[in-house]
Amino acid sequence: MPVFGRMRRGAPADRIAVYDTDRAAVRAAGRDPRQFEALYRKYLPQVYSFAFYELGNHHDAEDVTERTFLSALAALPRFEERGDGPSTFRVWLFRIARNAISNHRRSLARRREAPAELADALPAPLDPEHLAAERESVARAWAAVARLPADRRRALILRFVEEMSTAEIARVMERSEGAVRVLVHRALRTVARELGARREGDARQRR
């Protein structure tokens, strides 16, 4: 286990652009690594959600989340604003998470199918009669997303779950903004087709 030393006072944090809302927190963590906890608390649900939607189960999501934050803590002295786009702390953290997910996938003996546990994670309806249909439609949407090719699914998750802008997603995925727009558009089209096909299938069954 590496030992995390103190960072040089102010060196990397000075290069963070003014539009990074985490600037103060990153500066504080740069002066004292114990202050990293504030960034951890803020981004834990985001990183965990990203990992969960990517990997489809809580156990793997926890593993990846842990690796992401330990890596981020160790690499924080090397974090710097590049100035050619929204290279914020959040983008930087999600790039670490993306790499951790890729490494985790490689380490898995076989690729798991996501839908089963994603569907299990849905909250139980309080009013079964009223909410069963809603739960069903949510489960279908999740299943449709889980069946997308990896890059399209990732773009959708970053857009809908993390509510990232196209520019941010482009930085996380290391693609152009135009490519990300096309990815999201195509992913949405696939999901729409699948949801439409299911609706038609259900209607046929009812008839």
């Binding site: 965990y48 959600s49 989340t65 809908f160």
Partner: peptide, 13 residues
Amino acid sequence: ARALRDALVRIHP
């Protein structure tokens, strides 16, 4: 898009 907005919620550990 509306279905995904409602379905893809953030999940807390």
